[in-house]
C-alpha cells in the first residue's frame, strides 16, 4: 500500500505518494501525465517491486491544488526542481540524484529538470513527453475536444477503461470534487503548455548528458512518433528508444507491466 505525505513546496502543500524499498538503488521519482494521479496507479506498483517509487503531485494535478501563481515556464521549472529538493524532508529522506521518470505533461518538466538541474538526476526516462511541436505533423489539441466523459479517455488511452479505472470515484469520494479535480488538471496542463506544447526544450537538451530512455505507446494519438525522435537527436547523453505495444499516449496506464519492464531494465542497466 502506498504511503501518503504532504510537503511544502514553494509555500504550497504538495501530496507525495510513495511505495517500495531498495537501498541499493536511487528512488524513481514520477512526474505524471495528462490528468495526473487521482490515485496510485498499477504502473507505479510495478515499478515499486524493485525500488522505492515517489510520486509528487505536479501543480494543479490531483494532490496539489495551487498552480495559478505559476505564470512563466521558468516558474514551473523552479517548482519542479524545488519539488525534487523537498523530497529530502520525507521520512527516510532522499539525498543524492534520483531516477526521474516523466510521462506526457510530466515528461516536459522532467526534461527541463534534467537540462537545468542535472546534478539532481542520475537517469531520465520519458514517456511521450510534451515539449516540441511541428506544424506539418501537429500534436493533437487536447484542449479543443468535444465535451463528454469519453473524449479524453479515448484520446489519451488505447484502452479507455484504464483511464476510467484510475478515475473511478471511491465510495467515500465526492464525485463533484473529482470532476473539478480533473478539470483543474486539464487547466494546469494548459497553463504550462497551451497552445502547442512547445516549450523550446529542444534548445536545452544538449545539457542532458545522463542516460535517457524515450518511450512511447505504439498507438499514441496525441504526439506523433517523430517528436520522441527529435528529443533523441537533441539529447547529449546515451539514448535508448523503445515502443510499448498496445498502448496509447499514456502508455503507463494502458500497459503498466510492459512500460515498467522497459524502465526497470533501463534503470538497472550497468552498461550505460
Amino acid at each position: 500500500m502506498p504511503q501518503e505525505h504532504t510537503l511544502d513546496v514553494g509555500g504550497h502543500p504538495v501530496r507525495i505518494l510513495e511505495d517500495g524499498h531498495n537501498p541499493a538503488a536511487p528512488p524513481a521519482v514520477f512526474f505524471a501525465g495528462i490528468g495526473g494521479l487521482p490515485q496510485w496507479p498499477p504502473f507505479l506498483s510495478e515499478l515499486a517491486q524493485t525500488r522505492r517509487v515517489i510520486a509528487p503531485s505536479l501543480p494543479g494535478f490531483p494532490g496539489a491544488e495551487h498552480f495559478r501563481h505559476l505564470d512563466s515556464l521558468l516558474d514551473w521549472i523552479v517548482q519542479a526542481v524545488e519539488t525534487l529538493e523537498a523530497l529530502d524532508a520525507l521520512p527516510g529522506g532522499s539525498d543524492g540524484p534520483v531516477d526521474l521518470v516523466g510521462s506526457s505533461v510530466g515528461g516536459a518538466l522532467a526534461a527541463e529538470v534534467a537540462a537545468l538541474a542535472g546534478p539532481l538526476v542520475r537517469r531520465l526516462a520519458l514517456i511521450a513527453p510534451f515539449g516540441c511541436f511541428d506544424a506539418d505533423e501537429p500534436a493533437a489539441d487536447i484542449w479543443a475536444q468535444v465535451p463528454g466523459p469519453d473524449t479524453i479517455p479515448n484520446l489519451v488511452c488505447e484502452h479507455p477503461a484504464c483511464w476510467q479505472a484510475l478515475w473511478e470515484v471511491p465510495e467515500d469520494g465526492d464525485a463533484l470534487e473529482w470532476q473539478v479535480m480533473q478539470a483543474r488538471a486539464q487547466e494546469a496542463a494548459a497553463r504550462l503548455l497551451f497552445p502547442f506544447g512547445d516549450t523550446g526544450v529542444l534548445r536545452r537538451l544538449h545539457r542532458v548528458d545522463c542516460p535517457t530512455l524515450l518511450l512511447r505507446g505504439a498507438n499514441d494519438r496525441v504526439l506523433p512518433a517523430s517528436y520522441n525522435a527529435r528529443f533523441a537527436d537533441a539529447l547529449a547523453g546515451p539514448v535508448r528508444s523503445a515502443t510499448v505495444a498496445d498502448a496509447g499516449h499514456l502508455a503507463e496506464l494502458d500497459a503498466p507491466e510492459a512500460t515498467a519492464r522497459e524502465i526497470n531494465a533501463f534503470l538497472a542497466d550497468q552498461g550505460l
Binding site: W143, P147, L176, Q179, R184, E187, A189, A190
Partner: peptide, 23 residues
C-alpha cells in the same frame, strides 16, 4: 462543440455551480 469549453475558461466556482445545477 470542441471550441466551446477549454479547461480553465470557466472558473472553478462557475464549474462547480454548473455541475451542481446540471445534476
Amino acid at each position: 462543440p470542441k471550441w466551446a469549453s477549454p479547461a480553465g475558461y470557466q472558473s472553478e466556482a462557475t464549474l462547480r455551480a454548473r455541475v451542481q445545477s446540471q445534476v
